[in-house]
Simulated assay, not measured.
Amino acid sequence: MKEILIASFDMEVGGVERSLISMLNNFDYEAYNVDLMLYSHTGDFIQLLPANANLLKESQSYKTFRMSIGQVLKSGKITLSLTRLMAKYKASMSKTSEPGYKQMQYMWKYALPLLPRIEKTYDVAISYLWPHYVVAEKVKANIKIAWIHTDFSTVETDVKTDIIMWQKFNYIIAVSEECKNTFITKYPSLKEKVIVMENITSPDIVTALSTEEVENPMTNDQRFKLITVARLSHAKGIDQAVKALKLVRDRGFKNIAWYVVGYGGDEEMLRELIAANGLEDSFIFLGKKMNPYAYMKAADLYVQPSRYEGKAVTVGEAQILAKSVLITNYPTAQSQVNDGVDGIICDLSVEGIADGIENLYQNDKLRKQLITNCLSKDFYNSKEMEKLYELI
């Protein structure tokens, strides 16, 4: 039986974590022994991990990467906290509008000498979330595989530092064809390593969970209801959503409410934006939900207002629930939705989102056609796992 290691950060509620759960639930445990290394044993999705996956003991050194610099200092790991400060300083010196990605790179790079090695030797080691330094440098394995879930054309990274890390891997798996293409554009020398494997979807689980009884303010809301399931972050474009709803209402469409399931660092800023636009009664945060599907089911339209995505898991889940879907034209959008068939792709702008909402609000026939097409689509893609088994 082959020994497999899968490494990731934690099991907080998110699309990447949800796709990892689906993959683990579809693994062939009769052929493979799977160890799961989570740097931090935190997150609501921990309880969803299948019993067949062996969760390795948490390392206090790795756990620090989900802690603030102040918390790391208090834990007594002074040298590790100094590497974090160094990473923050170096990232701040680079001319970039969003230094967070570079800071994360440098954080792992500088801390590597202080982190313990994984003693066991594996047949295959999989790093499920960038940056992939742990599997690259601290794990012994015959084959190493890294996953990419994002559109690398939209994030600013230290390319030279990244190339050194990527070269440690035999294969790189992209979650969509467009995700692969944007990655290769940035790292052309890695082209031969990249393979596409779609996120594994579990239609039966999504459908079953959508019928679960939850306290849902959407149930008694008679307005036309939009829903988005996403982190409250710049990448997900929730600020664009707020401005788009304001524009829609200014055009005279008052009977629309927008609900958001999710959490994140931008919440305070977004609440201020909502208040500034007088949308407190119609742009509503539902918070973090382990099961977002009951809320999706109660909506009339699913909207993904993102600035960039690798492939949004939630869009596919909304389609499984036979929802009409509107997504912005981020670079990988074409691999997510067949425009005009199983969803609509709008311009990536406040006006574009507003136009898309207005169109679908007024065009009941179009919404019904999108729903019909989703109902006839086959979302079962567990055969995608065969691509991974071939690599193994």
Rank of each mutant, 00 (worst) to 15 (best):
Met218His: 01
Asp347Leu: 00
Asp355Arg: 14
Pro113Trp: 07
Glu212Leu: 15
Gln71Glu: 09
Phe152Thr: 04
Ile392Thr: 12
Met385Glu: 03
Asp204Met: 05
Val196His: 14
Phe183Leu: 03
Leu49Ile: 15
Tyr101Trp: 07
Gly264Asp: 01
Gly340Gln: 02
Asp123Cys: 01
Val194Ile: 14
Pro305Gly: 07
Trp166Glu: 15
Gly340Met: 06
Pro203Gln: 10
Asn338Leu: 08
Pro292Gln: 04
Ala31Met: 15
Ala312Asn: 01
Ala235Gln: 12
Ala241Met: 01
Lys191Pro: 01
Val159Glu: 11
Ser382Ile: 14
Arg307Val: 14
Ser382Ala: 14
Lys168Phe: 11
Ser306Val: 02
Val350Asn: 08
Leu301Trp: 04
Glu317Ser: 02
Leu301Val: 03
Ser81Glu: 12
Lys377Gln: 14
Pro203Tyr: 11
Tyr187Met: 00
Leu286Ile: 04
Tyr259Cys: 13
Gly287Met: 06
Glu309Asn: 15
Ile21Cys: 10
Met197His: 08
Ser376Pro: 07
Ile195Phe: 02
Asn373Phe: 04
Asp364Met: 08
Thr314Met: 00
Glu215Lys: 10
Ile46Lys: 10
Lys365Asp: 04
Lys288Pro: 05
Lys289Glu: 01
Ser81Pro: 10
Val135Gln: 11
Lys297His: 03
Val16Ala: 14
Glu384Tyr: 00
Thr64Cys: 07
Lys288Leu: 13
Leu190Trp: 00
Asp239Gly: 05
Cys179Ala: 07
Met107Tyr: 14
Phe224Asn: 09
Asn25Asp: 15
Met67Lys: 15
Asn52Val: 02
Tyr133Met: 15
Ser176Phe: 12
Lys168Trp: 15
Ala87Leu: 14
Gln222Lys: 06
Phe9Val: 02
Leu80Pro: 06
Glu386Ala: 09
Lys225Ala: 09
Met1Pro: 01
Tyr128Glu: 13
Asn329Tyr: 02
Lys77Trp: 01
Glu390Asp: 02
Phe9Cys: 04
Leu129Gly: 05
Thr185Asn: 10
Gly316Ser: 08
Lys288Ile: 06
Lys243Cys: 04
Tyr380Gln: 13
Ser92Gln: 01
Trp258Phe: 09
Asp158Glu: 12
Ile392Ser: 12
